[in-house]
Computed example of a mutant assay.
Amino acid sequence: MHELTLNNGVTIPALGFGVFQTPPDETRAAVDAALATGYRHIDTAAAYGNERQVGEAIAGSGVDRSDVFVETKIWISDYGYDETLHGFEKAARKLGVDQIDLLILHQALPSDFDKTIGAYRALEKLLADADVRAIGVSNFMVEHLTALLDAVDVVPAVNQIEVHPYFAQREVQAFGVEHGIVTQAWAPIGGITFYRDSGHTSTLEDPSIGEIATAHGKSPAQVMLRWHLQQGRQVIPKSVRPERIAENFDVFDFALTDAELATIDGLETGKRGGPEPADVTLAAWGRPVPED
């Protein structure tokens, strides 16, 4: 399994499995299939409502807990120092683990950045106490990362952001490279939300990607995942279909040429599929995270 080394020396599989928008009653079967296929990194979040099912799947998989890299996210409703420490307790209880491999903040919450700083300082304590092995952020733009680094001691290990051929956020990625922050790509093959709301067709139907896929005898999804991996990003594709879960994992037996990578880079549209980070506020997006 190909791995990346985070800025604190912890290793993470380069290809993980995501469960965003996976209903709780489908999550366990999806994670079961992923672990059976060979995935060893599972990414979930408090806001997804399926941490418990992820934990059940890992516990029942027969795969040793030490071999599975577990990542989850603190939701904005649990920001603040004490609130985030409690958010960790809720997540660990639902996942059925004593230690979380990677714990990150789900959004920057720019409208109340003091709460964001407090939440991140709680992550630093959890890291110092070995309750987590690495910490990071998600959906942080350059201005958020800059403000965070001015206020805390530990540089985030990852920044999980929307990255796919139509929206690459290169400025954010470049900041990450400069500061040793690994980019985790969510919606790495575009995602239904992107092409439904952005006015574009699916990246899976892009003719340029299709031509590259045909040349390699691979699917468009496999080509896009390979594009991420060759450019040093960690990726977390999602699916509930065992055949697609297996397909997304089968990306280590071919390589894209420099010209093919450049072609995919050239598909940038500048249009975001997910919410604008500045629009994420407690008033609009806050909701309680259940205890169990």
Rank of each mutant, 00 (worst) to 15 (best):
H228T: 02
D258P: 13
S219K: 03
Q231I: 04
D250G: 14
F252P: 10
Q230C: 09
G217I: 05
N248V: 07
D253V: 09
V240H: 02
I245M: 05
Q234C: 02
D258V: 14
R233H: 14
F249E: 13
R233W: 12
L225P: 03
G217M: 01
G217K: 01
Q231H: 10
D253L: 14
E260P: 13
E243Q: 12
D250T: 12
D258Q: 15
W227G: 03
F252S: 15
R244T: 10
H228P: 01
A221V: 02
P220G: 09
T257Y: 08
I236N: 04
A221K: 00
E243K: 13
W227P: 02
I236G: 02
L225S: 02
R244E: 10
K218L: 08
P237E: 07
V223Y: 01
R241T: 14
Q231K: 14
P237G: 07
P242G: 04
V251R: 00
N248K: 08
K238M: 09
S239C: 07
K238D: 05
G217S: 03
Q231G: 06
V223C: 07
F249C: 11
P220T: 07
A221I: 00
A246Y: 05
L225V: 03
S239M: 08
E243W: 12
Q234F: 01
I245W: 05
A221Y: 01
E247V: 06
Q230S: 09
A246D: 10
M224D: 10
T257P: 03
S239W: 01
Q222Y: 04
K238I: 05
K238P: 03
Q230E: 14
A255D: 13
A255F: 13
R244C: 03
N248S: 13
D258K: 12
K238H: 10
G232C: 08
Q222L: 12
L256R: 06
F252K: 10
Q222M: 13
W227S: 00
A259S: 14
S239R: 01
L225E: 00
R233G: 08
L229T: 01
V235Y: 01
F252M: 14
F254S: 04
V223I: 15
D253A: 12
P220E: 11
P242T: 08
E247R: 04
I245H: 05
Q230G: 12
G232E: 10
L256D: 10
F252L: 15
F252D: 14
V235I: 13
S239F: 05
W227H: 01
P242E: 11
Q230K: 08
A259N: 15
K218F: 05
V240E: 10
R233P: 07
P237H: 04
S239V: 06
S219Y: 02
R226V: 04
V223S: 03
T257C: 11
E247K: 02
Q222N: 12
F252Q: 13
P242R: 06
L225T: 00
Q222T: 04
A255I: 07
F249V: 04
V240Y: 01
F249Q: 07
L229A: 09
L225C: 00
E260G: 05
V223Q: 09
E243D: 14
V223H: 02
P220M: 09
D258G: 15
Q234Y: 00
V240K: 07
A259G: 14
H228I: 00
I236T: 09
H228M: 04
G232R: 06
D253K: 05
V235W: 00
E260L: 14
